[in-house]
Design a protein around this nucleic acid. Structure first.
Lengths: 353, 353
DNA sequence: TTGTAGGCGTTATCAC
DNA sequence: GTGATAACGCCTACAA
């Protein structure tokens, strides 16, 4: 069989002698063994129906025998269609983001797309670097968290022309597509619930608002809702806190010192709320009698505490799946730019308020 | 300037006309603009010192003006040294794995390596598929969770010759390097603590043991420690449970029905332990008086509960960092195969026992 | 149904 | 210090 293609054989071996590849079998090696041309092997692997069954059979055997694995780098380069997508998360500490990630990965998996992961550590500058690197890697699409990005990030993405999906909010001027919900409306709805429950002096706690449109929107929703109910709505009843259970407890303590009349606290995420609830109980406070506590996200912990946390339910895994599906659609060439997918939210009233 | 290289210019434009690239600037485009050859641009970017300052300057300007981003696919193909690594996690639901992930990503980031993520959903078959895909993508190294892998996974990895790092355990015959600790010793140590504390009838709960060497090792450590203390050590005091807070509560209930004499339960992870603790309190049980509860992992929640959970502390982020560092060392060509890094563990005694 | 020619964008090699 | 040439492994376009 081999002598049917003496030229290819010699070309291949000469090449190997000169520049030594990885030693891995290539398409040409498989082709030679199967007694066909490389392109036929390529076709047999990608569109089997275009290849005669007998040929396909021989090729399959050769692939098997040589343990051939296609080189996707070469494939992507030649076809300029990489089978990778990237996602930038602000942190890997919070499960709410890995929940989204899970949805994304699961969807990409079904199409054999790989997910390249970046951790921006809440920094727009790091995000920018990551985006540049991803573009260098020629990923087929990018998922971003939030709608706040550096100027250069926007320029890079626009110039790249690849599908972009922003998550967690619904900006007026999305970079490409976006999947999220109205953080402002969600926070306003929770605030309305607290007011309706009869709480007179409500405080608000969130992660730092800088560079974080979601947090900013939630705070805005809180304040505007208070105002709409004729309540005093100054920034003095809003607090910022690092992200951890312990920090939630600490900020509750701070609030009770600064504003002793506070009878309810709305935390912009469940981790802080849970931390506050646990700390309150350690301190002998009754929830919600002495202080009511509301959260945001509806993490598993929220429902497992006693009393369980009133919170805002967000379908994070669904968010990730939608984002992944939009990316894939964009990669297929469908026009997704400008698409805004509202996944909504749900106020879950439980014992803590 | 342009007319100094008329041939290259025409070659480039002809190529573009024929086959339309992404429209993105290439090395050749930058070279033409800077009036040098492509290889000089390549050098200026990768080893600036080999290029004259003036040339470098001109090239830098051209790069800037054209918004050039190197194509790493092409670079990796040509140099056969991709700047990517891959990690397979069994799930994205548990923060203990994303903690590790964080460590890995942070280390890779420093060297501008990208991390490709796979979720095996606890399935060795899926892991195998993921590994094959990663190898097709020609990642430079792979991190695996645990030491149980399919036969083909082992074959594929061995044939690939790339650095492999197994995490969370210290197998006798590692695939490559491994970073972990003795799950058996850790579980035995916790069991010893419970016995020393005076608990007479201890139960053990873990995730399913099939295909999970870590869980299997922990159970073995539990049973052998009981035996070492002259206690009865049958499998009837071990239980398996899905992974969630709610499941932790459910399994505690099951134990109290089946083995009412149980006065302590050792959970092989903190999520189950926390779920059990919260459920116990809801049911009016006193912890540890009515039933003692111990966990494993030392997640943040463990320390925030009341009473705080006795648990086994594992430095997960450090584990991830070590794994990342080993990978990079392997990529650099250092011989890491056979390296076993023991990161140890620490029994953290708190109020729940 | 299968093959030929050449390009994808970069880097290794060797020469000047 | 800089460049010409070929190669990395595959795919598109066109041909047979």
């Amino acid at each position: 069989m081999a002598d049917r293609h003496p030229r290819e054989a010699s070309v291949a071996s000469r090449a190997r002698a000169r520049r030594k590849g990885h030693g891995r079998a290539t398409l040409a090696d498989v082709a030679q063994r199967a007694g066909v041309s490389p392109i036929t092997v390529s076709r047999a692997l990608r569109s089997p129906l275009l290849v005669a069954a007998a040929t396909r059979e021989r090729i399959a055997r050769a692939v098997e025998e040589m343990g051939y694995l296609p080189n996707l780098l070469a494939g992507s380069l030649a076809s300029s269609s990489p089978r990778t997508a990237a996602a930038v998360l602000p942190t890997l500490d919070a499960s709410i983001f890995t929940d989204v990630l899970k949805g994304v990965v699961d969807v990409l998996d079904r199409d054999a797309y790989q997910l390249v992961l970046g951790n921006s550590h809440w920094s727009l500058a790091v995000e920018e670097t990551l985006v540049a690197t991803f573009l260098s890697h020629r990923v087929g699409a990018i998922i971003l968290t939030g709608a706040t990005h550096s100027r250069r990030t926007r320029v890079l993405l626009a110039a790249s022309g690849i599908p972009v999906v922003e998550t967690w909010s619904l900006p007026d001027e999305p970079l490409g597509a976006c999947v999220g919900f109205s953080n402002e409306a969600a926070a306003a709805a929770m605030t309305r619930h607290l007011v309706a429950r009869g709480y007179r002096d409500v405080a608000f706690v969130s992660a730092p608002v800088d560079d974080n449109d979601r947090t900013a929107d939630r705070r805005r929703g809180f304040l505007s809702s208070l105002r709409a109910h004729g309540r005093e709505a100054g920034l003095d009843r809003t607090f910022e806190s690092p992200f951890s259970l312990a920090a939630g407890g600490a900020v509750l303590e701070r609030i009770r010192e600064r504003r002793p009349a506070t009878d309810a606290v709305f935390f912009a995420n469940d981790v802080l709320a849970a931390g506050a609830l646990l700390a309150a109980q350690r301190a002998g406070l009754r929830v919600p009698q002495d202080v009511a506590i509301a959260g945001f996200d509806d993490t598993e912990l929220a429902g497992a505490l006693t009393p369980p946390l009133t919170t805002v339910r967000i379908d994070r895994e669904g968010l990730g799946r939608r984002a992944g599906e939009l990316m894939l659609a964009g990669i297929r060439g469908e026009p997704i730019a400008g698409t805004k997918l509202d996944i909504g939210f749900e106020i879950v009233v439980r014992g803590s308020t």
